[in-house]
Computed example of a mutant assay.
Amino acid sequence: MKRAFAHLSFNGNCRAAMHFYKNCFGGELNMQTLEDMPQRHAFPPKLSQLVVHATLRSEQLILMASDLLDEPLTTGNHMSILLECQKEGEMEAIFDKLKMGGQVTRPIQKTHWGAMIGGLTDQFGNQWMLHHPLRTLTL
């Protein structure tokens, strides 16, 4: 696999979530709402600000998201996003930002396989794992 992208689904708070993630990771954020679409008249006006597609793009991350329009969202353990961090300080800084308003599920700690790992559920119910290799593993 050359690339993997994460796509997150929200119940009307996609805009707030993506601005939060932009604050955590930096990068360029683009969003398209129902109001921006040619078919906007087919939807009730109260839905006009729902996000149809959002992309946050930085050098190391592409994160896509949208608000669900026609199905209920089940937030939980259905997905985790793993971030590979190059430096321990980078890992700790991102972890500290993501945990705001959320819950730490695994404090940052050294592992038996020669890495540091930490886990959390952010304020929007999405699960994150941050990983930093402490040494190069040989197979």
Rank of each mutant, 00 (worst) to 15 (best):
E59L: 10
N13I: 04
F95P: 01
K110R: 12
L139T: 14
K22F: 00
K2P: 08
W113R: 10
F10Q: 03
T74W: 00
K87Q: 11
L98D: 03
D36C: 01
F20S: 02
R3T: 15
Q123N: 05
L61K: 01
D67H: 01
K110N: 15
P45G: 04
F25I: 08
L68W: 06
G118V: 06
P133N: 14
L34H: 05
L82N: 12
L61T: 07
T75K: 14
C14D: 03
L47H: 08
G118R: 06
M31F: 00
Q60I: 00
F25E: 09
T121H: 01
G119I: 01
D96K: 12
Q39F: 10
I108T: 06
C85Y: 01
S9M: 13
H112S: 14
N11D: 15
E28V: 11
T111E: 12
Q60T: 13
N126A: 13
G27S: 07
T75G: 05
V51K: 08
C85F: 00
K97I: 01
F95H: 01
W113E: 06
E71I: 06
F25A: 02
A93V: 00
N11L: 02
S48A: 15
Q32K: 05
S80E: 13
G27W: 02
Q49P: 01
G125H: 13
D67I: 00
T136I: 13
S80C: 08
M100Q: 15
G76N: 12
M37T: 07
T33Q: 04
R15W: 01
R40S: 13
Q60R: 07
A16E: 15
L73T: 04
L63W: 07
G76A: 04
W128R: 06
L29H: 05
E88C: 03
T55G: 06
K110Q: 13
F10E: 05
G118D: 10
Q123K: 15
D67K: 02
G114C: 08
P133D: 15
E88S: 11
W128L: 06
D96R: 11
I117W: 09
L82D: 07
H7A: 09
Q32E: 10
G114R: 06
W113C: 03
V104L: 04
E59N: 11
A17V: 05
D70Q: 13
